[in-house]
């Protein structure tokens, strides 16, 4: 039973990692990345690495989300013509 839960967590880990890369839209991608960090935290706690789990939770889900959202909100979207982009 415990092993099934662990494998489910690992599948969720890979799904959220792929989602963070493939999803269009910066904010959604960042939120999925923080979900990835939460799943990683649970896996670390599962493996009795509580110190690492705490660091992952604080950095991955807390600080990285804040810094990424700040970076996205400080940048502007540039509209380009399709011709220009293809070059």
């Amino acid at each position: 039973m415990l092993e099934v839960a662990f494998v489910l967590l690992l599948v969720l880990l890979v799904v959220t990692a792929l989602g963070a890369v493939l999803i269009r839209g910066y904010i959604t991608s960042i939120i999925v990345l923080s979900v990835f960090s939460v799943v990683t935290t649970v896996i670390f706690a599962f493996l009795q690495a509580v110190d690492v789990a705490m660091a992952e939770a604080v950095i991955g889900a807390g600080l990285m989300t804040a810094i990424f959202v700040t970076a996205v909100s400080r940048t502007q979207k540039v509209r380009r013509d399709r011709k220009e982009r293809s070059l």
Binding site: V7, L13, V14, V15, L18, L22
Partner: peptide
Amino acid sequence: AVAIAAVAAAGLGYVLL
């Protein structure tokens, strides 16, 4: 393809872990 890759990577990770 994404789903298959996810399952395969999770399985590999489980074996290694």
